[in-house]
Write a protein that binds this DNA or RNA. Structure first.
Length: 547
RNA sequence: GGGCCCAUAGCUCAAUGGAUAGAGUACAGGAUUCCGGAUCCUGGAAUGAGGGUUCGAUUCCCUUUGGGCCCUCCA
C-alpha cells in the first residue's frame, strides 16, 4: 500500500513546514495524493503545497519548494521530488518499491485488495426488495447488481455484511395478487389494478389443489402466492444472477404478537414516548415535518391499520436493534421522496440518521431497438430479468448495470445488449484474463514453471512499469468504491487494466529465450491475473480461463 | 406549485475541486511466419446557456433552458 506510506511521509513534511512558519500542527490541511494525469511523468502528485500556502498566506511556489526539500530527504523511498507551476509536488518513487509491491500481490493472491477498514463492523445492505407479486424485471437487476457488488467490496474490506431482502407481503397489492391468482385460474381477466401475467396461471396450476380447497380463505391463498412467487421466481432469478441473500425479512413478521405486542406497536409507542406522534381525524400522525418533510404522515389509519410507513419505521427500528452499525438501503429513484421521512423516523427513534445511508439508482428505461417498452406489471408486457439473463448472460448483464453511475438513468436496449454480447467491454476484460491463463498453459507446455521468487527487477520496459503502477492502485480503488458507495469505478478500472495488458501483449512476448526474464514476466502477468480475477469477483462476474 | 436526479465527442458513458477533460462504439485506414486477432496502431470530434466562489470549476453556489422521476390514510 504505497499510498498509505506516502501519506505518512507527506504528513511529516507538512508538519515540519507548518512548524517552520509558526503554525500549530493541530489542524492539518486536507490535501490529496493522486496519480497525476498522463502528460505528467511522475508516479504520484500532491496538492499539499497549494492548500498549505493559502492557509499560511504565503506564495504557493515558495511553500512547494520547502515541502519538496523536506520530502527529498526520504532518499530510500523517493528517486526524485519536483514541484511545478501551479504548485503541485511530483514524486518519483524508487523502482524497488514497485517491485516489492508486485511480489506482494502474488503473495496475497485472492486476498489482495482486501483490508480491514471495516474492522468487522456490522453492516446491512437491503436491496432489490421488490414486491413479491411477480418475476423480477430489468429495473430490479440494477439494484441487484449494485447491492451485490457493494456487499462484496465491503465484505472484502473487513465489514461484517448482511444482504437482506425485505418482502412486502402485507397490504393491498397482496390482496390484489390473491384475487388475480384466482381470476387467472378461472380464466377471468384480472381485477382492476391487479396482475395479469401468464406466470399467475403457472402459479395457480402448481397449487390448484390447495387453492381450490381453500377457495374462501384469502389469507391462505395470499400466503401460498407470495411463497410460491418468491421461491419459483424471485429466488431463482437472483440465483441465476449469482446473488444469494443472507436474510429474507417478511413485513408480516412485524405484525406477529409477542407478549401482547407486535413490532409495529413497539415502534409507534417509542415514537409516542418521544413526542413525535399525534392524533387527528381518527388517525395517528408522525410529525415528519420536524425532519424536512413537507407534511406530516399518517402511520395508523382511521381503521386502525398501519400504513406502509409504519411498517418501514418498525423495520428500521428492528434493523438497528439487531445491532447493525450502518444500514444501507438501495432504492429506485422513484422512492426519493421517502428518504426524509424514513431518516426522520430513525432520528425520532433515537438513532443517528447518518447511520442509514440510502443509495438511489435512477430508473432503467427498457427499449427494444430504440423503441421504449412501457413497463407495467398489470399489462404483463414487462421484460423480465430472466429474459435478459437468458439472452445476454449474467456476466455481461452485470457489467452493463455496473458500468454506469447509479444516479444517471440507464437505457437498457435489449437488442443492443445482445449485439454487445460480442462487443461488450466485459469480454475485453475477461479476454485479458483468458490470455494470461493461456500464457501459463503455453509456459507449462514448454516446461517452464511459474516461480514467485524470480527477480522482478528485470521488468524494465515502460509498458511493464505502467502495468505494475496500475495494479497497485487496486486496493485504493476498492476503498474509494466503498466510501462513495459507487461500485462503477471498478468497471472503468478493469477496462484500463485490461487495456494496458493487451497493449503490452502486442508489443512484448512473455515467454522469451532469456530464462530469467521469462520468470520475471510470468510474475507480472501472474499479478495481473490476480487483480483481474479479484476485481471481477467483486462484481460477481466470472474470470474464464478460456473463452 | 414544491422536491430529487440528469445534461460532456455522431451515439453510450468516465473524470476524490487540479496540470493538455478520458474510454468504448461508429466511421476511415493500417498491423500477425512467433505466448489466443474477442487483440493492437493511426485519425478527427465534447463540458446546454449566463453569472458567482477559488490560486484553479465538468465538479461547489445562484439564475436559466431541456429531459426523467416523486409529491396517497398505495405499497
Amino acid at each position: 500500500m504505497i499510498k498509505k506510506e506516502l501519506l505518512l511521509i507527506i504528513d511529516k513534511a507538512v508538519k515540519k513546514v507548518m512548524m517552520n512558519h509558526g503554525e500549530a500542527e493541530t489542524r492539518m490541511p486536507r490535501y490529496n495524493v493522486e496519480v497525476p494525469p498522463g502528460n505528467i511523468k511522475a508516479d504520484y502528485a500532491t496538492n499539499a503545497a497549494m492548500i498549505l500556502a493559502s492557509r499560511l498566506k504565503e506564495s504557493t511556489l515558495k511553500i512547494a519548494g520547502e515541502l519538496a526539500t523536506e520530502l527529498s530527504l526520504e532518499k530510500k523511498y523517493f528517486e526524485a521530488v519536483k514541484f511545478m507551476k501551479p504548485g503541485f509536488i511530483n514524486i518519483y518513487i524508487n523502482k524497488s518499491v514497485f517491485y516489492n509491491e508486485l511480489e506482494n500481490i502474488i503473495r496475497e493472491g485472492h486476498k489482495y485488495g482486501g483490508g480491514n477498514i471495516g474492522s468487522k463492523r456490522k453492516v446491512m445492505i437491503e436491496f432489490v426488495s421488490a414486491n413479491p407479486t411477480g418475476p423480477s424485471h430489468v429495473g430490479h437487476g440494477r439494484g441487484a447488481a449494485l447491492g451485490d457488488c457493494l456487499a462484496n467490496i465491503m465484505k472484502n474490506l473487513g465489514f461484517d455484511v448482511t444482504r437482506e431482502y425485505y418482502v412486502n407481503d402485507v397490504g393491498n397489492q397482496i390482496n390484489l395478487l390473491a384475487d388475480s391468482l384466482v381470476c387467472a385460474g378461472e380464466g377471468k381477466p384480472a381485477p382492476e389494478g391487479g396482475y395479469g401475467g401468464d406466470y399467475l396461471k403457472e402459479v395457480y396450476n402448481e397449487g390448484r389443489g390447495f387453492i381450490e380447497e381453500n377457495s374462501g380463505d384469502r389469507e391462505a391463498i395470499k400466503k401460498y402466492a407470495v411463497e410460491k412467487i418468491i421461491e419459483k421466481y424471485i429466488k431463482k432469478d437472483m440465483g441465476d444472477f449469482g446473488l444469494v441473500f443472507d436474510n429474507w425479512f417478511y413485513e408480516s413478521s412485524l405484525f406477529k404478537e409477542k407478549d401482547g405486542k407486535n413490532k409495529i406497536d413497539a415502534a409507534v409507542d417509542r415514537l409516542k414516548k418521544k413526542g413525535y406522534v399525534y392524533e387527528k381525524g381518527g388517525a395517528l400522525w408522525f410529525k415528519s415535518t420536524e425532519f424536512k418533510d413537507d407534511k406530516d404522515r399518517v402511520i395508523t389509519r382511521k381503521d386502525k391499520t398501519g400504513t406502509y410507513l409504519a411498517s418501514d419505521i418498525a423495520y428500521h427500528y428492528d434493523k438497528f436493534k439487531r445491532g447493525f452499525e450502518t444500514v444501507i438501503n438501495i432504492w429506485g429513484a422513484d422512492h426519493h421522496g421517502y428518504i426524509d421521512r424514513v431518516k426522520g423516523s430513525v432520528k425520532a427513534l433515537g438513532y443517528d440518521p447518518d447511520r442509514l445511508k440510502i443509495l438511489l439508482y435512477q430508473l432503467v428505461n427498457l427499449t427494444i431497438g430504440g423503441k421504449p417498452v412501457i413497463m407495467s406489471k398489470r399489462k404483463a408486457n414487462y421484460v423480465t430479468l430472466r429474459q435478459v439473463i437468458d439472452e445476454v448472460g449474467s456476466d455481461a448483464c452485470r457489467f452493463f448495470y455496473l458500468m454506469r453511475n447509479a444516479n444517471s438513468p440507464l437505457d437498457f436496449d435489449l437488442e443492443l445488449a445482445k449485439k454487445q454480447s460480442q462487443e461488450n467491454p466485459v469480454y475485453y476484460v475477461q479476454y485479458a484474463h483468458a490470455r494470461v491463463c493461456s500464457i501459463f498453459r503455453e509456459a507449462k507446455k514448454m516446461g517452464v514453471d511459474f516461480n514467485p521468487g524470480c527477480d522482478a527487477g528485470l521488468l524494465k520496459e515502460p509498458e511493464e512499469l505502467i502495468i505494475i503502477k496500475k495494479l497497485i492502485t487496486y486496493p485504493d480503488l476498492l476503498v474509494h468504491c466503498c466510501n462513495t458507495l459507487e461500485p462503477h469505478h471498478l468497471t472503468g478500472y478493469l477496462q484500463d487494466l485490461a487495456g494496458v495488458f493487451h497493449r503490452y501483449y502486442t508489443k512484448h512476448r512473455v515467454i522469451v529465450n532469456d530464462k530469467n526474464l521469462t520468470g520475471s514476466r510470468l510474475m507480472l502477468v501472474k499479478a495481473l491475473q490476480v487483480v483481474v480475477r479479484n476485481g471481477l469477483k467483486m462484481m460477481g462476474i466470472s474470470a474464464p480461463e478460456k473463452m
